[in-house]
Design a protein around this nucleic acid. Structure first.
Lengths: 333, 333
DNA sequence: TTGTATGCGTTATCAC
DNA sequence: GTGATAACGCATACAA
């Protein structure tokens, strides 16, 4: 080596205690010359932390579509992790798998080398959460809430849904139907927003205009629209973008004029929705932000904060045309 | 402990040498009782491998859109990694960053704890590739080719582009323009496919109907369409889906009938393109498959294979309506 | 300001 | 079939 001791070298490189300028220079030079790279495994073994966290998202092998939302989330998490020199492991689990063997989510965690976890739970994720808790692993839930008061960051699903209904109502729609999922808190809250707004507005809620389904797909969306059409709905709030596409497809196939005959508002906003005909009005979530904030929260936990925090991100209306036609004298903006 | 020695326990757990039934049972029982989990850091330190690989994708902070393609890719990689008990680290780099400090891509790698890398290179990635090579890290390029003959898996961009042009020509389009990028091999090959098909068909290639740009965005797509319209193009092949949206938006704004007046075909297929009006004809890449195959290739390298392999995935035409109207007597299918 | 020595949890080599 | 024990590369408590 440079003649210095191993300890001095370590300190010189990490700036963890005073080292003479001279020595420091020699060390740095030598390190560069020999192409020294710290070995994370050893450091990890010593310090018991990896500076790595995992994000675990649901991904059934068939319905790949719905996941684009998570791409933005992941990028948000990446951004924050990048700022704080952490690495990000992306893992998935199949929400529809027989939860029997508590799924392989375990694998990432079993190896006990992620400092924390961001989990997007789904209906049957109690076991998964329990597992993480049992390991004393800091975690924050994302997009959907857990049963208890774990830290989590979600959108204001209820408010978003209510906004959608109010908007359509403001265009004179009265028979507003609902297509959405069941199971996740997200779905429940969107449904709650729907009922809340309908009640506030004194609008009738027919059971036949409410289509609840466990799984999301284009086909399911189509069937939902079919049912609501039969129940003479004049507007539909679809709580998921894939099903929204399905519903829209059905309306088109039936030659139903949108938004004149039937208005429609979806959840989750993508640029291309502007190009549909008619351009689709949606409730926009702050996906990137959601990831960023969740990462921030987790990092704070890693830093020692042990209180739980629930963060609810605002949603916004992206008003285009599919929701309906503004009544005379009224202006939506 | 169980009275057994540490060595025996290790062997019992790993099945790495003969252990009596009796002892084995005791060990397993004890392990479960105490909630034993192997420490990856230590194992890593000892074995010099982490069973972890990284995928590194370009991501400029503004243009988040183009990345949805990579979501599918990532899922494909995940799938394969899952099968072989590996973990996946997702990292990004800013392709437009001043490459001066060879970017922070280094960080993941410097820590020398990924066994291999899947890299999506961009125009200025020579340094990045060089860096990985210098580390003797197995890697495979994805989506775009490198300067040398590194292992890589891409789509057949040239053939895909040529298909698009031929399809539009088969609908009687003669003044077919091109909107695309420059810099990446992907862009170049798509342009090559365009010129190839144009030449084969004996169609005139006006420079004014060729719009090349370094960065992708809706706005750029719009400007491209504007230029091509001025050059009286009757069809446009857009080599990127974001720019395709931009081009389409401009055509609509100008009240140009698609596909009657101007046909359009894009690259990359998404379900929602079916819902646009008119439904957009596209060249579809096998994104999920691309990730899966790249992972497979990398895994094989980790297994000792040291030859380079170049895999080109086929593209397919997703024929909808935007490309043009089939001539009498001809049928596309 | 610098050096010495110990241990993190494994695997692997050797001896028994 | 089993048990000591060294080594992996680092951080750090303790001395100097």
């Amino acid at each position: 080596m440079t003649g210095l001791s191993i300890a001095t070298v370590s300190h010189a490189l990490n700036g963890t205690r005073a080292v003479s300028e001279d020595s420091k220079e020699r060390v740095v030079a030598a390190a560069k010359a020999v192409g020294y790279r710290p070995n994370l495994a050893a450091r990890m073994l010593r310090t018991q932390k990896s500076n790595t966290i995992a994000i675990i998202i649901p991904s059934d092998t068939n319905n790949i579509n719905a996941n684009y939302f998570y791409m933005d989330v992941i990028m948000g998490v990446r951004r924050k992790m990048n700022e704080s020199q952490h690495e990000l492991i992306v893992s998935t689990y199949d929400p529809y798998a027989s939860g029997g063997k508590s799924s392989h989510i375990a694998q990432v965690l079993q190896k006990q080398w992620v400092d924390g976890v961001i989990l997007v739970p789904s209906a049957g994720s109690q076991k998964r959460i329990k597992l993480i808790q049992d390991m004393n692993l800091p975690y924050v839930l994302l997009d959907r809430r857990g049963a208890d008061d774990s830290s989590c960051v979600t959108s204001d699903n209820q408010k978003g849904a209510a906004d959608a209904v109010r908007l359509m109502a403001s265009c004179g729609k009265k028979c507003i139907g609902f297509i959405g999922g069941v199971g996740s808190t997200t779905s429940r809250l969107r449904f709650a927003g729907y009922t809340q707004a309908m009640e506030e507005l004194g609008l009738p809620m027919e059971e036949s205009r409410i289509f609840l389904c466990p799984a999301f797909s284009l086909e399911v969306g189509e069937r939902g629209a079919e049912q609501l059409l039969a129940a003479s709905a004049d507007a539909i709030f679809v709580a998921d973008n894939v099903m929204m596409m399905g519903a829209l497809r059905h309306l088109k196939a039936m030659n139903v004029a949108v938004p004149e005959e039937v208005g429609i508002v979806g959840f989750d906003d993508f640029d291309w929705m502007d190009m549909l005909s008619p351009p689709i009005t949606t409730i926009k979530q702050q996906a990137y932000q959601m990831g960023y904030v969740a990462a921030e929260l987790l990092l704070r936990k890693l830093g020692g904060m042990d209180s739980n925090e629930v963060i609810v991100l605002d949603t916004s209306l992206v008003i285009r045309q599919s929701h309906g036609i503004p009544l005379e004298g009224t202006e939506n903006r």
